[in-house]
Computed example of a mutant assay.
Amino acid sequence: MKALGKSPDKGREAAGVNFPSRLVQLAAFLPDLLLYNDHCSVQRTLPSVETFNGVLLCAEITGVLLYGGDILNFTGDGLLVLWKGSRSQLSNIITLVAEYSLRMQWWFEYTCSSMDLELQLKIGLSAGHVSQLIVGDEKCQYLLVTGQQVDDARLAQSLAETWEVILSPNCWELCKRDILEAKKIPGQKAVKLRYVKNLHQDYSCHCGKWISSLQKFSGILRRNASILSPNSEHEKALRRFVVGNILEKIDDNQPLKFFSELRPLTVVFVKLQFYESIKMPESCGSIQEATVHISGTIESSRGKILKISTFGKVQMAARMLMLYPGLIACDEVTYSKSGLPSRFFKKLPDEEMNDAVTSEVKYEYLGRKKNP
């Protein structure tokens, strides 16, 4: 517990632990896209939108910081990573990300076979315009990326078989085809990456210098955010993007190993669907309105929005959302722990899930009004 009347610095001295500044601890939970954004200020007008060029990787993977990737979002066992750059840099970045993807595929396959692990790794790449959207209110704010390239990365990943890397049509169009060898996929414009050809000396030298510049301090620190200087205004802006229980641990100067938690939760997924013809300003306004409304509604019951994602949802609750559209569905544990009479629920028909086989019974919540 944090002692009253003591400064954070005195608390650190008493504990005999050298804690990084609060700004650095906040940065550990946020992507660089947010940390070094010009719009990261307390006075930001919401929703805030920025468009830039980049290469996106959608996969179930770790270790991307070694190659300069910025982890934007985790969703269950999915991962979305961004390499931001100018339009002229995209072809080189695609080559870098393709090389990294193949190396990670080899490493995962070798590790799984040697340790007898049943893991699957499927990677999809896309490149082009990406939009960054910040929504929320004066208390909490959320960063998400959206646009055609996010959808393309997700689609490319869904087309991949185990240990495959799929390039979206736009990624294949922008890449250096004299370096990347790919195979066409029947009925698709996306292609399967086979291998990266021997890189010519100039590119290898350039790529090596780029990666070396990212791996500072002999590989101990992978992010510039690790050495951020204390800045009260920057810290105040970033605090709005971190959930409350993490902020409490940071303010209490708790060691990083205590930040992970395991607690019973009730999780609700809400899916927003837009017409394909909708324009970016309209969709951003709708997401902002939904965010503020949902946050205000669940706040009275101590509910919080944990994540807003645009690139897939793979947890059990999200799978049920996809399997039973238009219904309020729940699992057997939620049904039994709700304390409500059985007449408020109806058993749902079994549906086979694409990436998970489960025999668990699922229910539709009918509501009190339908069953007085």
Rank of each mutant, 00 (worst) to 15 (best):
E233F: 09
I246H: 04
V268Y: 00
Q273F: 02
D252F: 06
L238N: 05
V267E: 06
L247S: 00
Y275A: 10
A237F: 00
L262E: 13
V268E: 03
I246F: 05
D252H: 15
D251N: 15
F241A: 05
Y275T: 06
E248D: 14
D252I: 04
V267F: 00
K271P: 02
G244M: 05
R263E: 13
Y275F: 09
L238P: 03
V268G: 01
S277A: 10
V242E: 02
K236V: 09
F258Q: 13
F258N: 11
K257Q: 08
L247E: 04
R239K: 14
I246M: 07
K257M: 01
E276D: 06
P264L: 06
Q254N: 09
N245G: 04
F241T: 02
G244F: 04
E233H: 13
L256W: 02
R239I: 02
E235M: 10
E233Y: 09
Q273T: 14
L262Y: 07
E276Q: 07
F274C: 07
P255T: 03
Q254G: 03
V268K: 04
E261Q: 11
K249Q: 12
T266Y: 07
E276R: 00
K279Q: 15
L272T: 08
T266I: 12
N245W: 07
Y275I: 02
F274G: 08
I246W: 00
V268L: 13
F241H: 03
P264T: 07
P255D: 04
F269R: 06
L265K: 14
L262K: 08
V270E: 00
D251W: 05
N245D: 12
